[in-house]
Design a protein around this nucleic acid. Structure first.
Lengths: 160, 160
DNA sequence: GAATTTTCAAAATTTTATGCGGTACAAATG
DNA sequence: CATTTGTACCGCATAAAATTTTGAAAATTC
């Protein structure tokens, strides 16, 4: 299974991708002006980028504070075993917890790093005690509370 | 300065936010059906959510592999000093590196955690040696390479 | 309980997306 | 070297969607 299917795209496509990453709500007319094409071929290119899977989806970014989410953390998690069964079981549990918004398998001392978001410290503690540490496969955890976020870019640096 | 400006929103607004986080490209007509209102008040609510800053922006999510970005990492960074001047200088440098897509100030042993994305290990190494570790304020760094990502949700769990 | 404000729906208008020839250019072929 | 073939583009026509307007209903306030 090749998960790194490279799809060809040129300079114009790259520009489209940069613009849509930064602002998905731009109209096709404006986008076409920005890249120097007429609307028809512009739209065609966007559709192709969507169909090829280069563009996976479109999302609204919310202000976490304003919707009452005051606590964000990274959590390093070690599992009791590293076999596939354990990892699958862990993943399944994690997928059921909406407060865990990211879960990555990583190298190094910990096995996984999670990004978690909660209302406040109380809610976070409750979540950790009652949900995360209850997962059978979890051995140890180490929390890093985010004090402030200086950069949270939704724009990936597209290589040449 | 109050960074946690709470803005009122009801159950319908919450539903709108959930839908737009998962799929920003939904038409207003479809959104209005999903939430059980007619198009006009639906659009009005969305505009209000945008103006109040609850919805900050809209972004296209790309497939990192397909655009040739094969290596993602988290990096724990310790600074040589923790005074404001140092932190500001560090932030300024970080903002100029597009491969650093996230930068958070955190509690714990490290001072900062970065999320970095690069073409491959070679490009990553070059980036770290020539850009990140060259920043004067950086003391030590610890990289955690992402082997695979199991969850990367763009939907925040909105509290009651 | 009357007045005010807010929320909503329906219809009209404006804006935007989309599909359709037709053309120019480039690479491949005879 | 001419011809073919294919691709990418443009401009226009049409369809779809967003947005505004108007006025009614519901909730809130006094």
């Amino acid at each position: 299974m090749d998960t790194s299917i490279k799809v060809k795209f040129d300079k114009i496509d790259r520009k489209i991708l940069e613009i849509l990453q930064a602002n998905a709500k731009i109209t096709n007319a404006q986008l076409s002006k920005d890249i120097g094409l007429s609307p028809a071929p512009t739209l065609e290119r966007v559709k192709k980028l969507e169909q090829s899977g280069i563009i996976k989806s479109y999302h609204a970014k919310l202000d976490a504070e304003k919707i009452g989410l005051g606590v964000s953390t990274f959590v390093l998690v070690s599992l009791i075993g590293h076999n596939k069964g354990n990892i699958d079981a862990f993943m399944k549990e994690i997928n059921g917890i909406p407060e865990v918004i990211e879960c990555h398998h990583i190298t190094g001392t910990g096995d996984f790093i999670l990004k978690i978001i909660a209302k406040d410290i109380t809610a976070y503690q409750k979540l950790m005690l009652e949900k995360v540490s209850e997962i059978r496969e979890v051995d140890s955890m180490q929390s890093m509370v985010i004090l402030s976020t200086f950069k949270d870019s939704k724009v990936l640096p597209i290589p040449e």
